[in-house]
Structures are given as C-alpha cells and as structure tokens.
C-alpha cells in the first residue's frame, strides 16, 4: 500500500516506476537545446561515458563527477550554421559527429580532441543537400544527398583522429533515402527507407555497394522511418516509426511497427504494433534494442517495449516545461530526456 501511494499514477494510468531518475544536468548557457547523446571519452587514461548536449550554436561535452553531478569539459562553438542533430558513432571514443543546417542538413562535422597539439578541434566531413546520415560500425558514416539531377549514397571512413580516410559509393535507388539502419546479425548489410515507403538493402563491404533488393512497406503509413534492422531465421525484421500516420479506429495511432520481410521474395508481414497512448499525438522517436521512446506533442515522453507492443512508461511534462528530446544512451538502458532550456535528465529504464 505504501509503495502504491508513493508511485505516482501518470497520464492514462501508466506508471513511472520503470524509469528511475539517476541524475540531472543543466546547461545554464544553453539558449535552445536541439539534441542530446552520449559518447565514450578518454582523458588521462580514464575512459568514461560522457553526455553531449547541443544547442543551435554550440555543442558541450559533460563528464560524470561524484554524487551524480556532471561537469562541463569543453564547448565547441560551431558558427553561423545551426546544429540540428548529434549523430552517434558506435564503438568510437573521443569523436562527436554533428549535422548542421537550416531545414535540411547542409553540413556534417566531427568534433574531437587532438592529442598531437593538445587542442579541441572540429573538422568538416561533408557538405551538400543531405537527407539522412547514420554512424555505422568501423567508424563510418553513411549519408544520402541530392543534387538536382541525382541522388548520392556514400560511406566515409574516419580515422581515430577524425580524418576522412576512404570513401565508398552505394548504388542509389530512384527515390530519396530518408533513413538508414545497419542490419544486426548480417555483416555488411545496410537498409534504408525511402520517401515512397520502400525498404532498400545494400551490401556495404569494401568492394561493392550493390543495391540488393527493394521491397515495398505498404501504403498505409506514408514516409515510414527505419530505426533498427536485424536478421533472424532467414527474415529481415525492421523497426519502423510512422511520424505522419493518421489515427484510425482499428489501429489507434501507430507509433512503431516491427515488420518482417523475406528478402528473397520481397513479401512482408507486420509482427508487432505499438500505438500512442490514447489521446496523445505527435512523436519524435528513438529506438535502442527492443525499447522505443518518443516525445509527444503534449510534452510527455512515452516509452514502449517493442516486443510486447505496449507503452510501458509515460513521463509527464515537467512542471518547468515539456520534454523536447528523448534519446537512448549508447550503453545500458539509460534514457536521456531533455528540455528546451538545456536541462537533461538521465533515467535508468
């Protein structure tokens, strides 16, 4: 009974107990936070999981201190073009990748520390009319970009010092690629979702960038975005979000779907379906393993278990302001919840 009284009942009867507040950091100099992420950072022989916060004009790196406090290590000033996204680079250390632009990405930059000359630096990776970018294993970045005539899909390999080493061009589909996901369980397989709801599969080994298959997702939800892909028992499972799906009586308001494709036949079937809590709309989502999180237009954050197809937690808007950002940390089940004023709360899930 005591536990029951202490557990706040949240909107729509969902409970907060699956999210435990671990710590909070506040960037007092931040005018308008645009993204948050985590990065492994090594200094003086000590490797720690640090938090990266981005506002339009700068990106800050925070290290954990004692008693769940955070200290700012460094702030990179990025200049005229606003930051719009932090691009996590899996399995890297001392490297932060950011996307800058106005409505669309116009530039990708790396932020790093150079031990050669003991300086925090930034370097340009790519410019153009960039539609999608993803950090993938082996310190690589894949991106799609458009010129008037054609689309380019390419991969850049980065050195430990943040220099661009090699490039590889992938065969582009006719339609614009809006999102990428590496295929877990199949080395060198990459998928993308396109503007007309196709899933494309590439081989991204060093020799070829073949487009192996194009499969249609279905017309029911336009502009689906892939967040995660994995291969199991000969099927390709893709986690999709549906930012623009309309509510229907039969399905409610779809947020995420897991769809199984047979890449040999291009046939597919829905496996699991996760809906927004009743009465909620709008979402900007992030997926890690079987967990998905999204900011809703009410200013709440919803968390789903994608294998159960159920919303498992709902963080109500903070009294000081609604949530604006929800991202999973690169390791462990840690949710980073951010507000526009630069406050970031870390929750254990």
């Amino acid at each position: 009974d005591v536990a029951e009284q202490l557990t706040p009942v949240l909107l729509d009867g969902l409970r907060e107990e699956s999210l435990q507040l671990v710590s909070k950091l506040k960037d007092s100099s931040s005018s308008c936070a645009v993204d948050v992420s985590t990065v492994w950072w090594e200094a003086a022989g000590c490797r720690e999981l640090c938090v990266v916060t981005a506002c339009e004009s700068s990106v800050s790196l925070w290290k954990p201190l004692a008693s769940d406090h955070w200290g700012k290590i460094y702030t990179w000033q990025v200049g005229e073009i606003p930051v719009i996204q932090i691009v996590p680079l899996p399995d890297t250390c001392n490297l932060v990748c950011i996307a800058l632009g106005d409505l669309e990405i116009g530039e990708i930059r790396l932020l790093l520390y150079s031990s050669e000359n003991d300086l925090f630096k930034q370097s340009l990776v790519k410019t153009g009319n960039i539609k999608a970018v993803l950090g993938i294993k082996d310190r690589r970045l894949v991106s799609s970009s458009r010129t008037v005539q054609e689309q380019q899909v390419d991969i850049v390999s980065l050195s430990e010092m943040g220099r661009c080493k090699d490039g590889q061009t992938l065969m582009p589909p006719e339609e614009t690629v809006l999102a990428f996901a590496e295929v877990e369980g199949v080395r060198d397989a990459l998928v993308g979702t396109t503007a007309v709801n196709s899933i494309v599969v590439w081989s991204v080994n060093l020799k070829t960038g073949q487009l192996l298959k194009k499969m249609h997702v279905g017309y029911s939800y336009p502009a689906s975005i892939c967040h995660r892909a994995y291969s199991d028992s000969g099927l390709l499972f893709v986690v999709l979000s549906h930012p623009h799906a309309k509510e229907s009586e039969s399905c409610g308001n779809p947020a995420f779907r897991v769809v199984a494709f047979n890449p040999k036949t291009a046939r597919s079937t829905g496996v699991m379906f996760s809906s927004l809590p009743p009465g909620h709309a709008g979402r900007q989502g992030d997926v890690k393993d079987a967990s998905a999180a999204a900011v809703l237009t009410s200013g709440a954050i919803a968390v789903w278990d994608l294998l159960l197809g159920q919303c498992t937690a709902l963080l109500p808007p903070d009294p000081e302001g609604g949530w604006a950002l929800a991202r999973w940390a690169t390791t462990s089940a840690c949710l980073l919840a951010g507000q526009r004023d630069g406050t970031v709360c870390l929750y254990q899930y």
């Binding site: 295929v183 199949v186 060198d188 397989a189 599969v201 081989s203 070829t208 073949q210 487009l211 192996l212 298959k213 291969s231 028992s233 000969g234 099927l235 390709l236 199984a260 494709f261 047979n262 890449p263 040999k264 036949t265 046939r267 597919s268 079937t269 496996v271």
Partner: peptide, 23 residues
C-alpha cells in the same frame, strides 16, 4: 510468420542476393 505467407525463406539470403546482384 509462415512460409506460405512470405514465400520460401533462406537463412543465407544476404549471400544469395549478393551473388545474384549485378556488380
């Protein structure tokens, strides 16, 4: 998911599609 819905399934789909794709 049944094989009748999705057609014949191959555990080596990636290798097979890679071998079939034009270089």
């Amino acid at each position: 998911c049944s094989e009748s819905d999705l057609g014949p399934i191959s555990l080596n789909w990636f290798e097979e599609l890679s071998a079939e794709a034009p270089p």
